[in-house]
Amino acid sequence: MGTYKLILNGKTLKGETTTEAVDAATAEKVFKQYANDNGVDGEWTYDDATKTFTVTE
């Protein structure tokens, strides 16, 4: 398990959240659902060194 971070750079929603997941693929699924639930759809990037996903609208 590891802690993964999501940085939201949406047009109307900005912020950060974290999740505990077994791997990056699992964290990505959780974060994409979170972003979708909050109406954020954009370009995704992932930094393996910091376990950080970023979505920018």
Rank of each mutant, 00 (worst) to 15 (best):
E28Q: 11
F31M: 03
W44R: 00
V22F: 13
G10S: 09
N36C: 11
K5N: 06
E20V: 14
F53P: 00
F31W: 02
K32T: 05
D23P: 01
D41V: 14
T3Y: 10
T18Q: 12
T54A: 05
T12N: 14
G39M: 07
D23K: 03
T50W: 04
W44I: 03
T50S: 10
D47R: 03
D37T: 08
G42P: 01
D37I: 10
A49V: 12
K29D: 06
T19I: 15
T52V: 07
A21S: 06
Y4R: 00
E28V: 05
G2P: 12
L6A: 03
A21Y: 03
W44G: 00
E28S: 07
Q33W: 05
A35E: 01
A35H: 01
A27G: 02
M1E: 12
G42H: 02
L6V: 05
T12M: 12
T45A: 11
T52N: 02
N36H: 15
I7Y: 06
T52I: 06
T54H: 06
T3C: 09
L13Q: 08
L13R: 10
E57R: 04
D41M: 11
E43G: 05
F53G: 00
D23I: 03
K5R: 15
T26D: 10
G10F: 12
L6Q: 00
F31G: 00
T52D: 01
A27P: 00
T19C: 11
T26H: 14
E16K: 07
T56Q: 07
K29S: 10
D41L: 14
L13Y: 14
K29C: 08
T45M: 11
Y34S: 02
T54R: 06
G15C: 12
G15H: 11
E16R: 07
Y34F: 11
Y4F: 08
G39L: 08
L13A: 08
E28W: 11
G10Y: 06
T12R: 08
E28K: 11
Y34C: 04
T54M: 12
G39I: 03
T3A: 09
K29E: 10
L8Q: 02
L13S: 07
L6N: 00
V22R: 10
G39D: 07
V22W: 12
A24W: 12
T56P: 01
K51C: 06
V40L: 12
M1A: 10
T56C: 06
T45W: 09
A21N: 03
N38Y: 14
G39S: 07
V55D: 01
T26C: 06
L13V: 15
K32N: 04
K5F: 14
D23V: 02
V55T: 03
G2Y: 14
A35Y: 03
V30N: 07
Y46Q: 01
V40N: 03
F53T: 00
G2N: 15
E43V: 14
Y4Q: 01
K11C: 12
L8Y: 09
D23Q: 03
G10N: 04
L6S: 01
G42Q: 02
E16T: 15
G39C: 07
K29P: 03
N36Y: 15
T54N: 05
E16V: 11
T17G: 04
I7D: 03
A21F: 04
D48C: 07
D23E: 04
A35I: 05
A21T: 05
N38D: 03
E28I: 08
K14F: 09
D48W: 09
L6C: 09
D23H: 04
G2D: 15
K14E: 05
T19R: 05
G10D: 03
V30Q: 10
N38W: 14
Y46G: 00
V55C: 08
T52S: 04
T54Q: 07
T50P: 02
W44A: 01
Y34H: 05
T50N: 09
K5E: 03
I7W: 04
V30I: 15
N38H: 15
K51P: 00
T54K: 06
E16H: 10
E20D: 14
T52Q: 04
A25C: 09
V55M: 05
T56E: 07
Y46S: 01
W44M: 04
T17S: 08
I7V: 13
A21W: 02
N38M: 15
Q33K: 15
N38C: 10
T26R: 06
A21I: 02
V55Y: 02
Y46N: 00
E57G: 05
T19E: 04
F53K: 00
D48P: 14
A24D: 05
M1I: 12
A49K: 12
D47F: 04
G2T: 15
G10L: 15
K5M: 07
L8V: 13
T50I: 06
K29Y: 08
A24F: 10
T50D: 05
G10T: 15
K11F: 10
V30Y: 15
E20P: 06
N38A: 13
T50K: 06
K29Q: 10
M1W: 14
M1D: 06
T26W: 08
K14Q: 13
D48N: 10
Q33A: 13
W44N: 00
T12S: 12
D23N: 09
L8N: 02
G2H: 15
A49F: 08
D37G: 05
T56N: 12
D47A: 04
G39W: 05
D47K: 04
T18C: 08
K32L: 09
T18L: 09
T18G: 04
Q33S: 07
D48R: 07
T12Q: 11
F53R: 00
Y34M: 06
M1Y: 13
K32M: 11
L6Y: 02
E57P: 07
A25M: 13
I7K: 06
G2R: 14
K11T: 11
G15N: 11
L8M: 13
D48A: 14
K5L: 08
I7H: 05
Y34N: 02
T56V: 07
T54L: 06
K11W: 10
I7E: 04
E16C: 13
Y46D: 00
V55K: 01
E57D: 08
T18K: 07
E57L: 07
A35F: 03
G42W: 05
L8I: 15
K5C: 06
E16N: 06
N9E: 08
T26V: 07
